[in-house]
């Protein structure tokens, strides 16, 4: 029996991704929808649809056989490093109250399969570190794909650079790093404040635009993050400190504490930071763009 889990922006797309992975057609398999996905806002809060596709027959196709050899379904970007320092920021994983949290690497899950399904929803959530997974993608087109991808990244970097220079940061330089499907751009400029904007709103807008442009150029789906200097890392630290402070306040006063509205990527950082505390619960309320996090003392 061959089984794989695949994701896509819609259920249909997820199914065709899964079929492409297995090299099978729709009538040879059983399809199970794990998650219908949702659109989200500003590229965050969006959840990809994910499906589990099971084939009863053992196919003679080599790709399918390689899948069969693996007990675990492989991610699109295989063998990617488990821990990435910027991981919670780039994610567009679900922002709702700690339902899907990256798991503690210190205690690997003995039954990783169910966990893995959940993690498929959030691209930046690390794959369960049970065994290194091998590429499912056919090898022969790999090189060509890589060249296309490099070109797409180059064009996207050029776009970002010309936009920020046009905005007035004439000295801006763009660096990039690719990790699986996570593409990170880092800007360096004297005018960092201009590019970040109030609470990162300009930076998030740039990220949104670059995300769209990158996926216009690239054939495969990319999750883009844009950073200026180490703004996002610093912001994450600030948010964690704020979270701890507000959590203490909630415990002390016994009342709920509502935070200011913030984008889902930032809410996620707080949910995650407080998921290790047993004395408070967190959830989000309201509609984007006014969605905000609420901390309550645990009952």
């Amino acid at each position: 029996m061959i089984q794989t889990v695949a994701t896509g922006t819609t259920v249909d797309e997820a199914v065709s991704n899964a079929l492409a992975k297995l090299g099978l057609t729709r009538d040879q398999v059983k399809i199970e929808i794990i998650d219908e996905g949702k659109k989200g806002f500003l590229g965050f809060g969006a959840r990809e649809a994910s499906v589990r596709v099971t084939a009863e027959v053992v196919s003679t196709e080599p790709e399918a056989a390689s899948v069969a050899a693996k007990v675990e379904p492989a991610e699109e970007a295989p063998g990617e490093p488990m821990a990435k320092p910027l991981e919670p920021i780039t994610s567009e994983g679900p922002a709702s109250a700690g339902t899907v949290q990256p798991e503690d690497p210190a205690e690997p899950d003995p039954v990783p399969f169910d966990k893995n399904e959940d993690e498929e929803k959030g691209p930046a959530v690390p794959v369960v570190p049970v065994e290194p997974l091998e590429p499912v993608r056919p090898e022969e087109s790999g090189e060509e794909q890589e060249r296309d991808l490099d070109e797409a990244i180059g064009m996207t970097a050029g776009y970002l650079k010309s936009v920020v220079r046009e905005m007035g940061a004439e000295d801006a330089e763009v660096f990039h790093a690719l990790d699986g499907k996570n593409l990170e751009f880092r800007l360096e400029s004297e005018k960092a404040a201009l590019l970040i904007g109030k609470r990162g709103q300009t930076l998030n807008a740039l990220q949104q635009l670059v995300q769209v442009v990158a996926n216009n150029y690239a054939k495969q789906f990319l999750v883009v993050s844009v950073d200026v200097g180490d703004y996002r890392a610093k912001r994450a630290e600030t948010l964690k400190m704020l979270a701890e402070r507000k959590a203490d306040q909630a415990v002390r006063t016994g009342a709920r504490v509502a935070l200011e509205p913030m984008p889902s990527s930032e809410r996620k950082i707080i949910h995650h930071a407080l998921s290790e505390r047993f004395d408070v619960d967190t959830h989000s309320e309201g509609k984007e763009p006014h969605r905000h996090l609420v901390i309550e003392p645990h009952k």
């Binding site: 806002f41 500003l42 590229g43 936009v163 905005m167 904007g197 709103q201 300009t202 998030n204 807008a205 740039l206 949104q208 635009l209 769209v212």
Partner: peptide
Amino acid sequence: RVATAIRTV
């Protein structure tokens, strides 16, 4: 989303 991003930038 894109229109908002354009306006912000």
